[in-house]
Amino acid sequence: MAYAYLFKYIIIGDTGVGKSCLLLQFTDKRFQPVHDLTIGVEFGARMITIEGKQIKLQIWDTAGQESFRSITRSYYRGAAGALLVYDITRRDTFNHLTTWLEDARQHSNSNMVIMLIGNKSDLESRREVKKEEGEAFAQEHGLIFMETSAKTASNVEEAFINTAKEIYQKIQEGVFDINNEANGIKIGPQHAATNATLAGNQGGQQAGGGCC
């Protein structure tokens, strides 16, 4: 399917915080209560629309276990966005955020947009991390922040889409070099066709397929 841009995302965070469930909820709109351990990397993809532009999100869901860290570290490269996930019902997953953030900053490109996600917001009764704590951590480290529930789908769309909006914004501002694929952004065929239409004012539309 034609897209204007492709953004590569990576989802990181401790094991069991709901990374794979967030991805499944976003791509398939369903929730899987049984936890299958991710033992390397898995992929998902979905089209979204931002300001009338078709954007394909290519999402890399990584293993959270410590033993896979050396492998997953190599997947930061070429990501435009990262979802850093913790579990609001497990304080330790919040405490490990600093380590995750250091890892991400060290192995990714400096413009990568990072969204901090406090997942499992449906389990209010078991909450160990206050929303304000998440907000404060995000503010301190320059991240975007949201609480989500992969189970009820609350804020899941928003988390993925707001990250994309931020990346799109950075493209508009010229922060990202979109011709360098190592930044996690690819220009799609649709975009090229649109440009042709604007420039030549003729013929480009058929070539582009789905128009924005």
Binding site: K8, D36, T38, I39, G40, V41, E42, F43, G44, A45, Q58, W60, I71, S74, Y75, Y76, R77, G78, A79, E181, A182
Partner: peptide
């Protein structure tokens, strides 16, 4: 889509049999 993701020459993801 997954084949497309796997063809990343920059991050070079290691594909395994990870589906139950």
């Amino acid at each position: 889509d997954e084949v497309e993701c796997s063809a990343d020459h920059i991050a070079r993801p290691i594909l395994i049999l990870n589906k139950e």
